[in-house]
Design a protein around this nucleic acid. Structure first.
Lengths: 252, 252
DNA sequence: GCAATAAATGACTCGAGGGTTATTAACTCC
DNA sequence: GGAGTTAATAACCCTCGAGTCATTTATTGC
């Protein structure tokens, strides 16, 4: 006994909003343009969403959920692997033991999963990185990167403690390089029409980094790089932020 | 026979504007807030600048000029070095020859120069990366990264052609990792109060990457990584952009 | 002190865009 | 087909901020 909503209306609004957000940022996107793009009126928008920000938060929640899933399965599977195959030793790395190659394989799989997800949500990523300044979401990109960083730092720590990795690199360096390289890739993909071949990329990065570490391990006893680099680095926890610090938390 | 302008007014306006731009982005910064911050009225702003955008462009020009200087001296000094010391060979890298270590030293110096410059202009960098969407400057960050990328790709190409570097990594991978890592660092530094120790960082990155390449060179003949990764990759020239593509060029 | 001149002010206009609401359209159930 | 209900519309209000300009203020040369 009532007029039912056009089932496509809500989805159409979300879709149009995503496009506008990418082009103009969260603030810059005009509600009237969004509704016009799907043949609706401004009022219709407020029928489905409390505000532009609420719509965006919805998108972000979905993405964040997926990210959290990925991170936690990565965590689980890594621990599982190490339980099953035993902790990696420096010798494994040096000799490119099957166990080590297997580990790289696993790590690679996880990296690819992340890239795929970012591709799926590339518009949202784009907005989070470059379109939310002066908004409740201003710190979100950094928050997400921080999660990834501290996650990888945890793994690095494990490896360092067990002697798998050299200790003479600044702690956090490898995680930061990984996150830096991958976020560069995400940054790039937000402006691409064709999905690039992530496999080639991820594989190369992995080889460079892991074999770089292996190379260092071989040189351990050689005297030429003596200075231990133990300055604490740039960790995720170093949140001595200026801009990001004044992130107004969401007031939904 | 006229009232002279307060000599400090213009500088004060620029200074206040930079602060506001960081906090709220180019569009989000209000002219009246900028002027209020240095005890002036809105009208005074238009006495010194045509618009907010004109002021920002001025900042950007200064930064861009410095960047171009750095890139060209890097280019010059690298070529000069290679002329003086001869082209590096794979053997140099493998054996960590003085010539090779010297080269790394040089490269490191240039990297540090870039980091220092970014630190000096960290507020401008911050704005360019995150505060110019829906603005004439929307594509600027990417333009600048592209310059750096293609510059490094040129060097990489040189090394690959002469056989110094392995050819079985995706072309552009090392440049992209460098730019990715360094821009991650820039991204981080825009929210830091204390200047971090760039030396430690740059040194670690260099060692990882170069020794990673060296390690690969050692494995050249080993059969275990066979597939040649020759997919063209993500080069600077791949400007198949969506968002960045519709950058309205400046209309000053 | 006074005229001339340029700096600086702040009240003003104006357009843009977020959010509201009275009204109309469309649908369902009886 | 009519009552009841909800979707959707579009005119409206309101705030905010860019840019303007008549007016005031400060300074200099005489």
């Amino acid at each position: 006994m009532a007029r039912p909503a056009d089932s496509k209306a809500r989805d159409a609004l979300i879709c149009a909003a995503r496009e506008r957000f990418v082009q103009h940022g969260l603030k810059g996107a005009r509600i009237e343009d969004i509704t016009k793009a799907c043949g609706l009126s401004k009022g219709a928008f407020y029928l489905h969403f409390k505000s532009k920000e609420a719509l965006f938060e919805e998108l972000l929640q979905a993405f964040g959920e997926r990210v959290r899933e990925l991170l936690s399965t990565r965590q689980l599977e890594t621990i599982e692997f190490l339980k099953a195959e035993g902790m990696l030793t420096a010798a494994d790395v040096r000799q490119q033991a099957p166990r080590y190659l297997h580990y790289i394989e696993l790590s690679n799989k996880h990296n690819l999963d992340v890239l795929e997800l970012c591709w799926e949500y590339r518009d949202v990523v784009h907005v989070v990185v470059r379109g939310v300044q002066d908004t409740a979401f201003a710190g979100t990109a950094w928050d997400m990167l921080s999660q990834a960083l501290s996650h990888l730092e945890y793994q690095e720590q494990m490896f360092i403690e067990r002697g798998t990795l050299r200790q003479d690199l600044a702690a956090g360096l490898v995680p930061a390089m990984l996150v830096g390289t991958y976020s560069m890739l995400c940054f790039q993909m937000t402006s691409m029409k064709q999905k690039p071949d992530f496999g080639v990329w991820a594989h190369g990065v992995n080889r460079l980094l892991y074999e770089g570490c292996a190379a260092l391990i071989q040189h351990v006893s050689s005297a030429e790089h003596e200075e231990t680099l133990e300055t604490p680095l740039l960790t995720a926890t170093e949140n001595c932020c200026l801009g990001a610090g004044k992130t107004k938390r969401r007031n939904s």
